[in-house]
Design a protein around this nucleic acid. Structure first.
Lengths: 339, 339
DNA sequence: TATTGGCACTCAGATGCCGCGAGTGCTAAC
DNA sequence: GTTAGCACTCGCGGCATCTGAGTGCCAATA
């Protein structure tokens, strides 16, 4: 059946091109993959594929290169996800198990992901979502200034300094702290606002402005926690692949330097095939990223998906390997966060 | 006097080369800067400069380019630091004043520095040094797990989760916390270790293992705070200047991706001229950084220098402007941290 | 002694030409 | 549907040539 072989040819072209970075011609194709047919036949198949816009010729009479559409078909239909090697798994485990606080875990995660894929990697901080308040702390700094800490169950800590209009004494602070924790501890971040509405009425009228100031600080912290944040690593991996881009990479790097862009990008992506979400080249509507592929998946904390992680690289990337790596790292990260 | 004019010629060459990126010849030199002499005279001067290794010719019969030594003489002898424009000052102020916690302040600082200089910028987190403990918090997570927070006066917060071998009750935790703060609050981080030696003896024998575990966690936090940390921004600025490097920039990016390298680098640098420290090209002994210049200065918190910030770029950079920017940003950062 | 005009010389880079060969597309035969 | 064969295309590397910016040096000048 023709269709079948054409697809095989596409697969071969993608593999060959990813491996060699050279446009691939009919002859090299029959040499290295044994279709039981001649190069002329392959040429016919390639003509078909070209008609379907799955491959393209950089110049007349040169080999063919997969188009974005070709890559897409490749990953959707053919990409068997190759499992990680044992040593790769080891690398992930040892690096992640040695971490303690959230910052460290995430920064190690992003590093291992970038090493594993040889691409630029990113990890988003756990977001509000279903996060709950673990603790609220009020620490005195000077006699008119306190430091608020908001600790969430995802391990994220938000700090906020507030200036008070009046001086305070420690017992008042302690009371505020105790009452706040009684009200907020274990509650969803999203419910904090209504939970502390009118909270200041618990206190003597002359203390209420002070309490109110502190409440505002807490709400600010909640807002800050809503603000999404991410860390990246392996920018140099991208730079190293400069030759995979038609022009300069600086527009790409520019786009990626702005976290806002990245955050918007990954927030738009929803898991599809293989549990990951993938945008290939021009599928990406973002300025400057039309020659890059973005691969993300979610990770969980306490059973809820809290944020995403993934990699970014040129469209000419090892999709099958990278999908495996991204999935594996997400799984490990979920496991680490379990406890 | 001859010497005098030769120096002027060097200055002109540096300026011209920084501006145009073209090797500069005797003719363009007399055209654009009015030395009252002919190009032949300038050529003689240039021959002198070349003999002194202050300039070099990329190829026979092409213009001249400053050597590292030439740049060095330029900044040491001629660099009048040009003040920032009002709008630049504004940019710094508005960006920094809008920040609340330490993380935010530093990440805005590094961003503004990279924007201002168009180079890759870095800011080191406040280090141990003369930092003192502001607070120690012990928060319960599960019934055998607590979260330790160590807050320093520089605003840095270290978190650490410890697993306890036995269950605990809240009153015990509260007591530990209160006693710990009594002992540690306001004390130098460097003195924590001796201050808590034997601390567990304050508690009943059966509680001592638990207390001991917590103490270990605190010491770990202190160690973590000693660990230096930095944030960078504007990597793409470096990539954009790729053409300023003889080979590929990837070795440079590689070197800079490793924070350890950067930290070691800036820790070796001590303020010299103009209150900043500068390594030009090969003055830098680090692998891969022989074509980059590193410019750092310190910033203060409560009157003590706590850490450094600076920029990294190709040796062909606007030294005078960048020195001004780095100094200004450090000054603003110091001011912000004041309160 | 410092400066200058003049001039021969150098060499990197641009331009243009040529031939090679990988690779295609097509056709006619199987 | 497959194949062999073949003419054709065109990017690329190599080679020769040309040009001009820029130098280095020398003899003349002030």
């Amino acid at each position: 059946m023709v269709q079948q072989r054409s697809i095989e040819v596409l697969r071969a072209i993608v593999q060959e091109y990813i491996a060699t970075k050279e446009p691939v011609g009919s002859k090299t194709l029959v040499d290295r993959h044994d279709f039981g047919v001649s190069s002329a036949t392959i040429r016919n198949d390639m003509a078909l594929l070209e008609e379907e816009n799955l491959i393209a010729a950089p110049h007349t009479s040169s080999g063919r290169v997969p188009t974005d559409k070709g890559y897409r078909l490749f990953v959707d239909r053919l990409g068997e996800v190759k499992p990680l090697s044992g040593s790769e798994k080891n690398a992930i485990e040892t690096l992640l198990l040695g971490s303690n606080d959230l910052d460290e875990i995430l920064s190690n995660t992003v590093r291992v992901l970038s090493k594993l894929t040889n691409q630029m990697a990113m990890v988003q901080y756990p977001t509000l979502g279903k996060s709950t308040v673990r603790n609220v702390e009020v620490l005195s700094v000077t006699d008119t200034k306190v430091l608020l800490l908001l600790v969430t169950d995802s391990g994220r800590i938000e700090q906020h300094t507030v200036e008070l209009a009046q001086t305070y004494d420690q017992t008042l602070i302690d009371e505020i702290r105790a009452r706040l924790n009684a009200v907020l501890s274990g509650k969803l971040l999203s419910s904090v606002q209504e939970l502390i509405a009118g909270f200041e009425k618990n206190f003597a009228p002359d203390k209420q402005p002070l309490v109110k100031t502190i409440l505002t600080g807490i709400l600010d912290s909640v807002d800050a926690n809503k603000t999404e944040k991410l860390i990246v690593a392996g920018t140099s991996n991208l730079a190293r692949r400069e030759s995979d881009f038609s022009g300069s990479i600086t527009p790409v790097l520019d786009a990626l330097e702005e976290q806002v862009v990245l955050l918007r990008l990954i927030s738009e992506m929803q898991a599809e095939q293989h549990g990951v979400s993938l945008r290939i080249g021009s599928e990406n509507k973002f300025e400057g990223l039309s020659e890059t592929s973005v691969l993300v998946t979610g990770y969980e904390n306490q059973g809820n998906e809290v944020a995403k992680l993934g990699v970014i690289g040129p469209t000419r990337m090892d999709y099958s390997g990278n999908i495996a790596a991204v999935r594996a790292v997400a799984r490990y990260l979920t496991k680490i966060l379990q406890n």
